[in-house]
Amino acid sequence: MTLKIDFGFRKQFKTYKFSLNYCYQCGTCSGGCPVAKLTNGDYNPRKIIEACILGLKEKLTTLLEPNVWQCSTCQKCVEYCPQGVELTEIFDHVKNLCVEAGNYPQAYKAQGEAIREKGSAIPMSNAIIKRRERLGLPVMKTASHSEIQTLLRETGFIKKMESI
């Protein structure tokens, strides 16, 4: 298989988080990463950074090698990176591009819809409504529907959700 270097992608990343340029691939992030340990290196934060530096967009966002969604965002890598590379924020950016490529956990789409409709990521069940009442807790109100709709439309989020 040949890997294509996407120069635009590479440039975008290096300007988005300049700290990327400081990576010297020491592997402090991967060596200490709990997910890397549990997946025996299938997931590897160092390789994601390496692919960003090299501009291997397809590898990251289509082939999901490694799969950035496996990051638990525990931030351990950010704490220990000797060069101050902002790994988790860079991964967020990779995830944004994965979404554009149609690669994301399906559960998120439903959550996104729920927030768009009700403002909350988790639907309210009857049992919980009853429970809240017995606990003497205030009734949960949904947020202003039109306000959320306006904002999500204006930022292009709704369009993005529809396109994927």
């Binding site: 969604w69 965002t73 967020d92 950016h93 995830k95 944004n96 994965c98 979404v99 994301y104 956990p105 998120y108 789409k109 959550q111 996104g112 927030i115 403002g119 909350s120 990521a121 205030p138 109100k141 947020a143 202003s144 306000e147 959320i148 904002l151 999500l152 204006e154 930022t155 292009g156 989020f157 993005k160 959700m161």
Partner: peptide, 25 residues
């Protein structure tokens, strides 16, 4: 109480979908 507050929004669905939207919400 924070009247009209929404989901924070969740880093999973928002931050990883679209960082700008995450900031706005």
């Amino acid at each position: 109480d924070m009247k009209g507050a929404t989901c924070c929004p969740a880093p999973g669905v928002f931050r990883s979908f679209d960082i700008p939207t995450w900031l706005v919400i």
